[in-house]
Simulated assay, not measured.
Amino acid sequence: MQKKISIVTPCYNEEANVKELYEQVKNVISSELPSYDYEHIFIDNASTDKTGDVLKEIASTDKKLKIIINSRNFGHIRSPVYGLTQASGDVVFLVVADLQDPPSLIPKFIAEYENGYNIVLGVKQSSSENKLMYKLREFYYSVLHKMSEVEIFKNFTGFGLYDRKSINALKSIRDPYPFFRGMVAEVGFRVKKIQYDQPVRVRGITKNNFYTLYDIGILGLINNSKVMLRMAIFVSVMIGTISFLIGVVYLVMKIVYWDQMPVGVAPLVIGGSFAFSVLLFFIGILGEYIGQIYTQVLDRPLVFEQERINFD
């Protein structure tokens, strides 16, 4: 029986890239993987440009191209995971629309799948993006890797192959606001990493900003580690101990130098401000955990669909 590849591409305002990505995927599979059937699913996050029109025009002549259009923009975290759950292939690829995930690597990923690997991950060994941003990402994933209760793959953005077994495992994780990279680490199975050089975005602009980067960053820490909560206990004990020792030293010095040593307002203000800032930081961390619990309790669907095309 002929096996089927599902390519899942989340997109938002990518009218300049979706057609070229579609053509690249089609050419790679038809020329290098003729024994496989395939479908290419674009999940459009309610784009405000002509992304939907471009995709619909292609879909009218090629039934292998399938489209899901969300009822609104559900963000860069929920929509891609939902797209993966709608794929019907024996293997599923997650490939973003900005052409920074090279479709030319698909045959190499398939070769590793045929060697028995359940998950084949694309791991960046270099990137043409801003060097400072690349280093910051690398530092973040190093910290997350050390703090996490499961192995978090460094320089992995989601680009990769997932077999039907791993997709079913991912679907069983009921998380209304999922950290996909943590989910991949959680399910385990046999994982193969393939290094690649990430090309620069040629057309369009990135949809990531400070808030979206913070959102996914803090989500990774909260979903995969309790270290931040436990750190509050250790820091409070440490600051309390240091404050007690400073207080004892200050008391002794005041007794010895009663007339020469004034109490001073500055140490009290500085110490109070420092303690208050630490307190606010950990209240914020606690709030993030509570917010995540609230999201889990609501248990809302990942997305609501407005339209789907070529799903028979």
Rank of each mutant, 00 (worst) to 15 (best):
G217C: 01
G217N: 03
G217S: 07
G217Q: 00
I218A: 08
I218Q: 14
I218Y: 13
L219C: 05
L219G: 09
L219V: 12
L219F: 06
L219M: 13
L219Y: 10
G220F: 03
G220L: 00
G220V: 01
L221C: 07
L221D: 02
L221T: 04
I222K: 04
I222H: 05
I222Q: 09
N223K: 11
N223W: 10
N223A: 15
N223V: 01
N223G: 10
N224M: 04
N224G: 07
N224A: 02
N224T: 09
S225M: 00
S225D: 03
S225E: 14
S225W: 04
K226P: 09
K226T: 07
K226V: 04
K226I: 07
K226W: 04
V227E: 02
V227D: 06
V227G: 04
V227L: 11
M228F: 15
M228V: 15
M228P: 04
M228N: 13
M228E: 10
L229D: 11
L229P: 12
L229Q: 15
R230I: 12
M231D: 04
M231S: 12
A232S: 11
A232D: 09
A232M: 11
I233K: 15
I233N: 11
V235A: 02
V235M: 03
V235P: 09
V235Y: 06
S236L: 10
S236P: 03
S236I: 10
S236F: 09
S236C: 11
S236N: 10
S236D: 14
V237M: 09
V237D: 12
V237Q: 15
V237P: 00
V237C: 05
M238N: 02
M238D: 09
M238W: 13
M238S: 08
M238G: 05
I239G: 08
I239A: 05
I239M: 09
I239T: 15
I239V: 07
I239K: 13
G240V: 01
G240H: 00
G240I: 01
G240S: 08
T241D: 01
T241L: 07
T241C: 02
T241P: 00
I242H: 02
I242W: 03
S243L: 08
S243V: 06
S243T: 14
S243M: 02
F244S: 05
F244Q: 05
F244D: 00
L245R: 02
L245H: 01
L245F: 12
L245V: 08
I246K: 02
I246T: 01
I246E: 06
G247A: 02
G247V: 08
G247W: 09
